[in-house]
């Protein structure tokens, strides 16, 4: 009962297509777990069901023992889940710092305040979070002019704003240069270690996955086909089939939305 996240029998249909089939797994406290699989395997769909962006067709999701299936994302966030998206969704008309301040205002329940100027609220806290992801020097730039890799780092800072116990990161390094990827994953690993946060992430760069993930799950056509340590997964027959036999290269760039 001490798993941070417990998922059992998750299914999702889109019309007649089953995008996620009977997915069951757990994430332990302080664990850095990867969910990998070829393009269209259902990883993003899974994430969307974990945080309430999509209702599952059936199945249950528990956070720290409490059922959260079908609750809206904002409720799940309040219970301590942070999330980054495959395609970033930061507020384009705000500065980098303001993006983090927004999440902080929400966390401290000051959204409906009418007296203060928003740009002054929780500025220090926001800067501290930006410091962690190395974005402090860009704090006052408009989000709209940031490089994509920087947006991804900003998203991570935002996701940390509510002091989450669980971070869901959907393709956190997509669109980044290889060096940047390694740095971001190193950063994530540090956060897991220092803050005791659990992280579930999807990733298509296998170097990143094998270097950092404590556990790896492999999803194919909506089904979990393997789970284990890096070595176990690497030597799994089914996984090799999917990735090599299926013509998928380990380092293939993912452009899927």
């Amino acid at each position: 009962m001490n798993a941070v996240l417990k998922v059992s029998g998750l299914n999702r249909f889109f019309g007649g297509i089953q995008a996620v089939k009977d997915v069951t797994f757990e994430v332990a406290p302080g664990e850095l777990k990867a969910l990998i699989g070829p393009n269209g395997a259902g990883k993003s769909t899974c994430f969307n069901m974990l945080m309430g962006q999509l209702p599952p067709s059936s199945g249950k999701v528990f956070l720290n023992g409490e059922e959260i299936t079908g609750k809206p994302p904002r409720d799940i966030w309040r219970r301590g889940v942070g999330r980054t998206f495959q395609i970033t969704g930061t507020y384009q008309s705000m500065t980098v710092a303001e993006n983090v301040q927004m999440a902080l205002m929400s966390h401290h329940r000051r959204i409906f305040a009418i007296r203060p100027y928003a740009y002054k609220l929780y500025r220090e806290e926001a800067m501290a979070l930006l410091e962690i992801v190395g974005m402090a020097d860009q704090a006052d730039r408009a989000c709209a002019i940031l490089a994509y890799g920087d947006l991804k780092r900003l998203e991570l800072a935002i996701a940390l704003a509510n002091e989450p116990t669980l971070l869901l990161m959907d393709e956190p390094t997509a669109g980044m240069a290889p060096k940047e990827r390694i740095r971001l994953m190193q950063l994530t690993a540090d956060i897991v270690r220092e803050r005791g946060v659990s992280v579930l992430f999807t990733e298509h760069d296998m170097d990143v996955v094998f270097a950092h993930a404590h556990h790896i799950m492999v999803l194919n056509r909506g089904e979990l086909i393997a789970e284990g340590t890096a070595t176990e997964v690497r030597n799994n027959k089914k996984v090799q089939e999917v990735y090599l036999g299926g013509g998928m290269l380990f380092n293939k760039e993912d452009t899927h939305a």
Binding site: Y91, M94, M105, S106, A113, I114, L121
Partner: peptide, 26 residues
């Protein structure tokens, strides 16, 4: 003033990215 206050910022947030707003408790 409301535009510059948290409520105005939240409103701008919902316009810029409703998904992000919902995913951060708004």
């Amino acid at each position: 003033h409301l535009t510059h206050a948290p409520i105005g910022y939240a409103l701008r947030g919902t316009r810029d990215s409703a998904r992000q707003a919902e995913a951060t408790g708004i």
